[in-house]
């Protein structure tokens, strides 16, 4: 059974303005409905395959984000949703912002936009699913070897 048929998604709000957060939620509800790809929104990092992060990292939530990432089982994919998560966006120059989330954890898919549009996010999640499959195949091959 391929995991990519039903990847579970964990959403973490790093220091987003809520705009991207509600768009992430909106993509799981009717009209956009990413659940039709089998994606389910979960609150538990130990059940999650895809980590969707909104907002840039600040000093306070850096360890939280690292911990969430570490708690997710392999293989895992990270989606940076919104321009703030990609590189800091409008808050780039703020004293408390470190920058995009790739300063802290590796990012696989970047979905820009302020706020990120649900269409863009769904596209990013579909891309993430493909990467998830790749990572899984690689892990399997490594285990055999």
């Amino acid at each position: 059974m391929k995991m990519s048929k039903s990847p579970w998604l964990l959403h973490y709000d790093a220091s987003s303005c809520n705009g991207c957060d509600i768009e992430v939620l909106a993509s799981t509800t009717p009209v956009y409905d990413v659940e039709r790809f089998g994606v389910i929104n979960t609150g538990n990092p130990k059940h999650a395959d895809i980590l969707v992060v909104t907002g840039g990292v600040n000093y306070q939530n850096k360890p939280v984000l690292e911990q969430l990432y570490a708690q997710m089982p392999d293989p895992k994919v990270v989606v940076a949703a919104g321009i703030c998560a990609c590189d800091g966006g409008v808050f780039k120059d703020c004293y408390n912002i470190l920058g995009g989330i790739d300063k802290v954890i590796p990012v696989d898919v970047y979905a820009p936009g302020c706020a990120v549009r649900p269409e863009c996010l769904i596209d990013a999640v579909v891309k993430a699913i493909a990467i998830l499959d790749e990572k899984r195949a690689r892990m399997k091959a490594e285990n055999k070897a």
Partner: peptide
């Protein structure tokens, strides 16, 4: 407080 503090007033 502080998980989403960006400091935008300083901008």
């Amino acid at each position: 407080i502080g998980f989403i503090h960006r400091g935008l007033e300083k901008l």
